[in-house]
């Protein structure tokens, strides 16, 4: 059973990573940015393009792929969301536009790379290392470490840097931000850059573990959103706890109820939270 626990931690941290990559964006723009799902896949495919098609070493390919994902996020913001914001469109307009973006970009990936599975793994498949009676692979260790670094990094960033503080101000009250002289468009652009970069990173980590397909981003993205809501969308620690709760519920639910009910379990938990504690774990009461 140690294995089940470890799986829970692993999946939970991966969901946290994805959830935290959407966090800066959703905090600031207040709608569910579906096209984020395609950025996750894009990160993986950028790294595939650079490392496999161009033959560059992983050390160069991965950072560059993360940068390219960040660029993709910014591009969406500039081309679509910013004009919509200027017009004060309703959230549903944003959601539909972002679904449109998702469809377009996901099909561009299929068109360029094909629908079959692509891999950036090197070396043969190996048995996992023995760790307190459970098995863990090197890439899973890297995922865990990265996720923890990102959580801590983001916490410090939001608390201590000027940009982080500006983001919190814009998230809390856009009007107030304008009064104190914060250029909210610039801050939102940074949020897209950081969020999309993290999404690219998550995509690459997922691809290193379980390979890539053009639609690989949608499901983790949805889980990220669920984690964010049950965690409370204003608190990083809350999101991590939410992701862990979600992951454990899914793992143990799959173990005792049957794996086909994983989706239903995740969304049932979401509903319970929405009904009885809509502000999430650590969210502020509204």
């Amino acid at each position: 059973m140690e294995q089940l626990f470890l799986n829970g931690i692993l999946v939970g941290l991966l969901i946290s990573l994805i959830s935290l990559s959407v966090y800066p964006v959703i905090c600031l723009v207040r709608f569910f940015h579906f096209a984020h799902a395609v950025v996750i896949a894009a990160g993986a495919y950028f790294s595939f393009l650079l490392s496999r098609c161009f033959g560059w070493p992983m050390g160069i390919a991965i950072p560059l792929a993360i940068l390219l994902s960040a660029g993709l996020g910014c591009l969406m913001e500039v081309a679509v969301y910013k004009p919509l914001r200027k017009r004060e469109a309703k959230p549903i307009v944003f959601i539909l536009a972002s679904l449109g973006l998702y469809t377009v970009l996901q099909n561009v990936i299929s068109l360029v790379f094909g629908d079959d599975t692509k891999s950036i793994r090197t070396g043969p498949v190996r048995e996992g290392l023995n760790f307190l009676g459970a098995r863990i692979t090197p890439i899973q260790i890297i995922t865990i470490v990265t996720a923890i670094v990102v959580v801590v990094g983001l916490l410090l960033f939001m608390k201590y840097t000027r940009l982080g503080k500006a983001m919190r101000t814009v998230a809390n009250d856009a009007n107030l931000a304008r009064v104190v002289g914060i250029d909210s468009d610039r801050v939102i652009m940074w949020a897209f850059a950081i969020g999309s970069g993290l999404a690219g990173l998550a995509g690459i980590l997922m691809a290193l573990d379980t390979d890539m397909t053009p639609t690989m981003g949608m499901r983790p993205f949805m889980m990220g959103i669920v984690a964010m809501i049950i965690g409370g969308k204003d608190s990083i620690i809350g999101i991590v706890l939410g992701a862990l709760l979600l992951a454990f519920a899914q793992q143990y639910g799959a173990y005792y109820l049957g794996s086909e009910w994983q989706d239903a379990i995740a969304f049932a938990i979401l509903l319970i939270f929405l009904l009885f504690r809509p502000q999430g774990f650590l969210g502020k009461k509204v």
Partner: peptide, 17 residues
């Protein structure tokens, strides 16, 4: 019997069962 959902890539729980 274990089932795998379409579009998922993590089957560790099923395997572990």
């Amino acid at each position: 019997t274990e089932l795998l959902d379409l579009g998922v890539a993590d089957f560790r729980t099923q395997v572990f069962k």
